[in-house]
Nucleic acid binder design. Structure first.
Lengths: 99, 99
DNA sequence: GCAATATTTAGCTAAACTGCTAAGTATAAA
DNA sequence: TTTATACTTAGCAGTTTAGCTAAATATTGC
């Protein structure tokens, strides 16, 4: 992953997890393995279209994968993008003193 | 740290790092060990008051500590709060299958 | 005390975000 | 081929965010 793409990925991931509902969605989907849009919408306080938009933002950030199954849409966590955030956090484990 | 406080801390941290300028400030201050407000403001494209506000948000989130030194104000990274985010990310390393 | 330096606070505007309801699309069932 | 189900898209209103300039508040040095 080239540096520019990585920076864009980090930007999208950080923006995506900035909203509590999206963090909760992400964690819930992870813990259940996979969920349909309806399952997710049903579990949260927001109206369905609001959840749809949150899902869209998570997909756009690469944190969720989606898949059609008949009239259902199944969502799953894509763990690879979380690595970008892990990596960013890693900088703070290194001691200070660089440029 | 009780769960409610931890959740609030996570919220503040995630909101704080959602902005690219704030991520850059945080990393720059970490790498240099400590910086004055002027040093920080001088290194970034924004007007000084804009940077002051970003600094305020980072301090409020507990990610930066500040200290007066004459008419300068010195900022330093407070690493403990990053642990809250690390911990949240840790949930995704555990295999799915909980409730 | 008076001027200069370092930084913040106040207040404004434009843009982005988030929630909603209503309407649309696609698949399945009858 | 109609009707129901699952979900998305469109569009609007309220709130928050982020940038700016101008003015205020230390603190230091003369």
């Amino acid at each position: 992953m080239d540096p520019k793409a990585k920076l864009e990925a980090l930007e999208a991931v950080c923006a995506a997890i900035a909203h509590p509902a999206r963090r909760q969605i992400l964690l819930t989907v992870h813990l259940r393995g996979s969920m349909t849009a309806g399952d997710i919408a049903g579990r949260f306080a927001h109206a369905w279209p609001t959840t749809t938009r949150h899902l869209g933002i998570l997909v756009e950030a690469g944190l969720l994968k989606q898949e059609r199954a008949g009239r259902n849409r199944i969502y799953e966590v894509d763990h690879t993008r979380l690595g970008v955030l892990e990596e960013w956090l890693g900088w703070f484990r290194k001691p200070p003193g660089g440029d």
